[in-house]
Design a protein around this nucleic acid. Sequence first.
DNA 1: ACCGAACATGGCACTCAGTGCACACTCGGC
DNA 2: GCCGAGTGTGCACTGAGTGCCATGTTCGGT
Lengths: 222, 222
Amino acid sequence: MRDALIAAAFRLFLERGYEETTVDDIVALAGVGRRSFFRYFPSKEDVVFPDHERCLADMTAFLEASTDEDDPVRRVCDAARLVLRMYAEKPEFSVQRYRLTKRVPVLRAYELSVVWRYQRALAGYLREPFAGRRDAGLRADVIAAAVVAAHNNALRAWLRSDGKGDAEAAVDHALRHVQAAFGAMPAPPAGELPEDVVVVVARRETPLWRVVQELETTLGRG
Amino acid sequence: MRDALIAAAFRLFLERGYEETTVDDIVALAGVGRRSFFRYFPSKEDVVFPDHERCLADMTAFLEASTDEDDPVRRVCDAARLVLRMYAEKPEFSVQRYRLTKRVPVLRAYELSVVWRYQRALAGYLREPFAGRRDAGLRADVIAAAVVAAHNNALRAWLRSDGKGDAEAAVDHALRHVQAAFGAMPAPPAGELPEDVVVVVARRETPLWRVVQELETTLGRG
DNA sequence: ACCGAACATGGCACTCAGTGCACACTCGGC
DNA sequence: GCCGAGTGTGCACTGAGTGCCATGTTCGGT
């Protein structure tokens, strides 16, 4: 019944547009009562995103089941990959939905609220391992936002290409940026150096790896 | 008239709740016709965010008026400060609205769509100076998301404290994180140093990969 | 086979947001 | 006085979403 409603809704949405399709049209095509529609979907928008609720539950379960020894940023990136997998499971459906949400403001707004819930879940998870560090909440929020933005950037590129490319690879590439920026950035041992600024001087011919090595030891990360 | 409607709406929203207030109630209290409400506000939600449209226009104008020599990340951070200033101009109003949006899902969704437009404006601006670099769109999206997240983190903290603290300082502090992660490093003064030496100056919080990246471009290997 | 409880479905009437349309008022310019 | 533009208002309508109650329908218990 749920699936019948989704199928009928998408046929009409793609055929004549979202705004131009009424709930009565959908239930007429599906051959069910109007009241039953709202029993399965709390609103007309929900029928467009039928599996996000489950995916969100999966993500929170995944985050809660994490072992403490993991790098939390990596963990959060893996959680984002979980969402991508849901999209990649049904490429044609995801592409159709993307075309729909791209041109219907109401659906974009709904998608934003869904994305926001993912982002909140990630930030809430990050807050815990960061607790005690300075600006824990801020770091958690920024990293969660960066992860979501990178994920969405890759996802949208994949959707724009009609689901032809390799979505997993694209998201991996995008998330590597975030991990490089935030992944392993322990605070420098306070007190060892008086300033919060480090100066590196090198000859131009110096191999890059030598410079990096010198930086790492200077910063106490070697 | 616009202001009268806003005042009447907020009185009722705070008194008996957003969902429990109908548009008819608002226009009755304001003493105007129901049709006039929708002439000034396209929807019931819009009356809660009366000045965001203007602020968004201000931001895009600010970004378009930027000189090319500036650090784009800094420019984007300044654009975010513009939004904060709008909130800080009317602290009591902002705090009331915050309390409202915090507990009304419809308003949260609307706020998200507004924030998303800010973020798109920032990302769209960043795409230009990044053009040509590798992953320009990705970097633009991630940085815009990080700036917005940092801004909102500080803004919300200020709103939670009933507008008592120093909002500008909080946002400055939050944005410094983002600038440290993504901002450009100060270029070494050319000409003052011998040709075969390169000098890099960085804050200690700067991620190592940013230092390396800057080195690579300076050394002409990027 | 029978009964009743729980549940899924459908129909109906209602509220309320939002829109299109037509009409009235009010000005400044002629 | 007239007129066109802009602005406010009343009215009727669509469509989403809800509460209530009347139907099946499918169970387990006897």
